[in-house]
Amino acid sequence: MSNRFFEYLLRLGDDRLVLGHRLSEWCGHGPILEEDIAMANIALDLIGQANLLLLKAASVENAGRDADALAYLRDAREYRNALIAELPRGDFAFTIARQFLFSAWALRQWEALASCRDADLAGIAARAVKESRYHVRHSAEWLVRLGDGTEESHARAQDALDELWRYTGELFLTDAIERELAHEGLAADPSAFRSAWQKDVDDVVARATLRLPAVEHWQQGGRTGLHTEHLGRMLAEMQVLPRTYPGARW
């Protein structure tokens, strides 16, 4: 069980760590001050969640690695995040559209995990449900403003959805690891909340006067370490300090 649970905790943690880092890239570059602060705060929540999940993963693995080692000393092939999290931040519309699609999914996932059989994970989830509600509300409100805004903002928001939608299928893929853990009450089976998520997305996309594109080829691979070219570059920046100065403290 422990190897599978470790793997599952990495998936949960890496989604938040990678997306949190992408979001943190906006710090100091937001379109307005309030938004700069909002994105930094959401990034902080996600990286905080990732820290708790990787701490738990490290204790389950019990191999002498701590949360920092998992975050800073794994290469791209060892990362288990969904591809949608690692795509470059793009423009503001792309960042908002991704945040909405991810947060609406993460909220449902956390809600399901709040009753999971592992007390630590259930507690982390109960805490994160509350944070995720703010993330969903914030990104949904912005997506509607952009979609139902100017010609320019509408076009950019539509471009973002057209690019991102093909990455959402991976959020609902399950393999034997997740199915067995879900059966044991230790994981959330995403098929259980797919229709609720789809309804949330349809509702906001309609209000935003946007449309979801047809997809011919769904992108996937992150859960087994097959990433886009973007993750390696992101990790190079994220990991440079602890890799250059091992054990550095300040």
Binding site: L107, R137, V204
Partner: peptide, 12 residues
């Protein structure tokens, strides 16, 4: 009071 709002609610 902290209460559980519906997940996708645009305005507080």
């Amino acid at each position: 009071a902290a209460h559980d709002d519906p997940p996708v609610q645009l305005r507080r």
